[in-house]
Amino acid sequence: MSSPFPAMKPRQLLKVLAGLGYGEGSRDAGGSHRWLEAPGRPRLLWAFHESVTSIGPVVVRRILVKEVGLTQEEALEVIRRG
């Protein structure tokens, strides 16, 4: 059974998260890990690596549903809106 969630490039997923109000908080000393923060939503630790070409559907779903707290339907709608 295929996932209704798409694979996404890291920048695409960051754009989706920005649409939910997430912005960059602090970074680690090396600069590859960022805290993303949004009012009324949980903080997310984002491991940003330019070399990653795609984030798989399972991870996209985990971030939006499990970590952000959206329902599956809300998450898919946010992705459709871009």
Score class of each variant (00 low, 15 high):
residue 73 E to M: 05
residue 28 D to A: 03
residue 27 R to I: 07
residue 40 G to I: 10
residue 13 L to C: 05
residue 44 L to C: 10
residue 48 F to V: 00
residue 64 L to I: 05
residue 57 P to R: 14
residue 58 V to W: 11
residue 73 E to S: 03
residue 21 G to C: 07
residue 41 R to I: 00
residue 53 T to K: 12
residue 10 P to E: 15
residue 65 V to N: 08
residue 59 V to D: 13
residue 10 P to L: 14
residue 5 F to L: 10
residue 46 W to E: 00
residue 61 R to I: 12
residue 49 H to F: 13
residue 45 L to E: 09
residue 49 H to C: 12
residue 1 M to S: 12
residue 16 V to P: 01
residue 59 V to K: 15
residue 75 A to Q: 01
residue 65 V to G: 02
residue 73 E to W: 04
residue 49 H to K: 11
residue 46 W to Q: 01
residue 62 R to N: 14
residue 31 G to L: 06
residue 63 I to E: 01
residue 47 A to H: 06
residue 14 L to T: 00
residue 82 G to L: 10
residue 17 L to V: 04
residue 66 K to V: 11
residue 5 F to R: 02
residue 57 P to Y: 15
residue 37 E to W: 01
residue 31 G to E: 11
residue 43 R to C: 05
residue 23 G to V: 12
residue 39 P to E: 12
residue 42 P to W: 13
residue 11 R to N: 13
residue 46 W to H: 08
residue 44 L to W: 01
residue 61 R to C: 02
residue 55 I to F: 00
residue 35 W to P: 02
residue 6 P to I: 02
residue 54 S to E: 14
residue 69 G to V: 05
residue 75 A to P: 00
residue 56 G to V: 14
residue 53 T to V: 04
residue 75 A to W: 01
residue 53 T to Y: 11
residue 80 R to M: 03
residue 41 R to K: 11
residue 44 L to G: 04
residue 58 V to R: 10
residue 12 Q to C: 07
residue 27 R to W: 02
residue 35 W to K: 09
residue 65 V to I: 06
residue 78 V to Q: 07
residue 74 E to R: 07
residue 10 P to C: 14
residue 74 E to T: 04
residue 41 R to W: 00
residue 27 R to V: 10
residue 25 G to V: 10
residue 47 A to K: 09
residue 26 S to W: 06
residue 72 Q to D: 13
residue 66 K to T: 13
residue 44 L to A: 06
residue 49 H to L: 10
residue 14 L to I: 00
residue 11 R to F: 11
residue 12 Q to M: 09
residue 74 E to Q: 03
residue 67 E to W: 15
residue 40 G to M: 04
residue 36 L to W: 02
residue 23 G to P: 00
residue 7 A to E: 09
residue 39 P to L: 11
residue 28 D to M: 06
residue 45 L to G: 07
residue 32 S to A: 14
residue 28 D to G: 13
residue 25 G to R: 03
residue 49 H to W: 07
residue 7 A to W: 00
residue 35 W to F: 08
residue 45 L to F: 02
residue 50 E to H: 05
residue 8 M to L: 15
residue 66 K to G: 05
residue 10 P to I: 11
residue 38 A to T: 03
residue 64 L to Y: 04
residue 13 L to I: 01
residue 23 G to W: 06
residue 39 P to Y: 14
residue 22 Y to V: 12
